[in-house]
Amino acid sequence: MSDLHTTSSGESHGSVSSYIIGFVLAVILTVLAFAVVATHSLSPSGTVLAISALALVQVLVHLHYFLHMGGGSEQRWNNICFVFTVGFVAIFIIGTLFIMNNTALHMMSR
Rank of each mutant, 00 (worst) to 15 (best):
M1Y: 08
H68Q: 06
P44G: 04
R110S: 14
E74F: 05
S17D: 13
A53M: 13
I91R: 04
T39G: 02
N79Y: 02
V36M: 03
L60Y: 06
N102L: 15
H13K: 11
L56E: 06
A26R: 03
A35K: 09
V16K: 15
T30C: 11
L54T: 07
H40A: 07
L105V: 07
H62T: 04
T85Y: 00
M1A: 09
S45D: 08
A53I: 15
G72E: 10
H13Q: 14
H106C: 08
V16I: 15
E74V: 02
I91H: 04
A50T: 06
W77P: 00
V48G: 04
A35L: 14
S18A: 11
M107E: 14
G10Y: 05
V57E: 06
F98L: 13
N79A: 01
G10M: 03
T85E: 00
Q58T: 06
F98I: 11
G95P: 07
V61T: 10
S41Q: 12
V59E: 00
V36Q: 01
F92L: 12
M100W: 12
L63K: 02
R76H: 02
S12T: 14
A33D: 07
H62D: 05
L25R: 10
Y65C: 07
V36F: 10
V48E: 02
F84P: 00
A35N: 05
V59T: 05
G87S: 12
Q58P: 00
R110N: 13
A104D: 06
P44R: 03
M100N: 10
F92N: 08
S45V: 06
T96Y: 08
T47F: 07
H64V: 02
V57K: 01
H64E: 06
L67N: 03
G72T: 02
N78F: 00
S109D: 14
V61G: 01
F34G: 14
A53T: 12
V36E: 07
H62L: 11
Q58A: 08
F88D: 05
T39F: 12
M1H: 08
F84I: 09
S12N: 09
V59G: 01
V57A: 06
G71L: 07
S15D: 06
H106A: 12
M1W: 03
G71D: 05
L49D: 09
T47M: 12
A26W: 11
L63I: 00
S45L: 12
G95A: 04
F98H: 05
F88R: 01
S17L: 15
V83K: 00
L29T: 09
S18D: 03
L42K: 04
I80E: 01
V37Y: 12
I28T: 14
L56Q: 05
L105Q: 14
S109Y: 13
L25G: 05
N102G: 04
G71S: 06
N79P: 01
T7D: 15
A38G: 10
G72Q: 03
A53Y: 09
A33C: 14
S12F: 04
S45Y: 07
S12K: 13
F84N: 02
N101E: 09
N102P: 02
E11C: 11
L97I: 08
R110T: 10
H13A: 11
A50Y: 02
S8K: 14
G14D: 04
V57L: 11
H13I: 13
V86C: 02
T103Q: 14
L42F: 14
A38M: 12
L4D: 04
F88M: 05
L63D: 03
